[in-house]
């Protein structure tokens, strides 16, 4: 069965998702319920420890929820992780690539894990490299890359199998404005084919890119809506960053 065929309407849902880590005093996720439609760029915002990475880790099949459910294109992620994994792409915060391999070798390895092979795989490698502006560096090893190039290669690895849902965990951390601009442009262009769940600490990025944002704190949703709607609701804030500080406070989070 073609799993992609299942994706109609709501691409990703979470139902009263709770995640309590062993020994933790409070839940990292508390009754998180989301519904993300096809082609949405869904911003998951919050200070450190708000539960963003935990939410992504549960949604992308890495962590088992304590209770509640997650579906990707209608597939229960906890019950059928293997089926769900084929539809999911993940761009971690770390540069999760083999530094001693070239971009082509990294993408080839990841592509094969998703069952791609032959000419189809080579075509996807070329497309992904072109998409992130690394077509001229395909045979260059990752360790020789600048920070921005590594981030772009990291993104390409998450796209190799044309996922239905792409999880991006702070994909623009520590890179130059040019690379950030390119990544944001390309992600915006991708939304027709792929639903994205995006976490970032750069509020301006979220404001520009996301069609819908959820602001979390202490594992719970404290505000949600389209960025312009959220700002309309609180006229004292002129941008998302001001709103974010207003909602989560100025106290430092470590």
């Amino acid at each position: 069965m073609n799993e992609a065929g299942l994706c109609r309407g709501e691409t990703l849902t979470t139902d009263h998702l709770v995640k309590v880590y062993r020994g933790a005093a409070r839940p990292a996720l508390n009754e998180l319920t989301l519904s993300i439609g096809e082609g949405q760029i869904f911003g998951l915002l919050g200070p450190n420890g708000a539960g963003k990475t935990t939410a992504i880790s549960v949604m992308n099949t890495f962590l088992r929820p304590t209770s509640g459910g997650v579906t990707v294109c209608g597939i229960d992620v906890v019950k059928y992780p293997r089926r769900a994994k084929k539809l999911i792409g993940y761009v971690p915060q770390d540069i999760a690539l083999y530094p001693d391999l070239s971009v082509r070798e990294n993408l080839r390895f990841f592509g094969r894990i998703y069952g791609l092979r032959g000419k189809g795989l080579e075509r996807r490698i070329d497309e992904c490299a072109e998409f992130v502006g690394l077509e001229g560096n395909l045979d260059q090893r990752i360790f020789t890359f600048s920070g921005g190039m590594k981030r772009r290669a990291n993104l390409a690895a998450g796209l190799i199998h044309e996922p239905k849902v792409l999880f991006l965990d702070e994909p623009t951390v520590g890179i130059d404005p040019q690379s950030r601009n390119l990544i944001l442009e390309r992600l915006a262009a991708l939304k027709d084919k792929t639903t994205m769940v995006y976490t970032t600490h750069y509020m301006r990025e979220a404001e520009l890119l996301c069609s819908y944002v959820v602001i979390m704190d202490a594992g719970e949703i404290i505000a949600e809506g389209a960025p312009e709607d959220l700002l309309r609701r609180d006229p004292s804030c002129t941008n998302l960053e001001e709103l974010f500080i207003a909602l989560t406070g100025k106290q430092l989070r470590d």
Partner: peptide
């Protein structure tokens, strides 16, 4: 973080 990425893959 490679292991995390691999665990998310099939």
């Amino acid at each position: 973080g490679m292991l995390t990425r691999l665990f998310v893959m099939p």
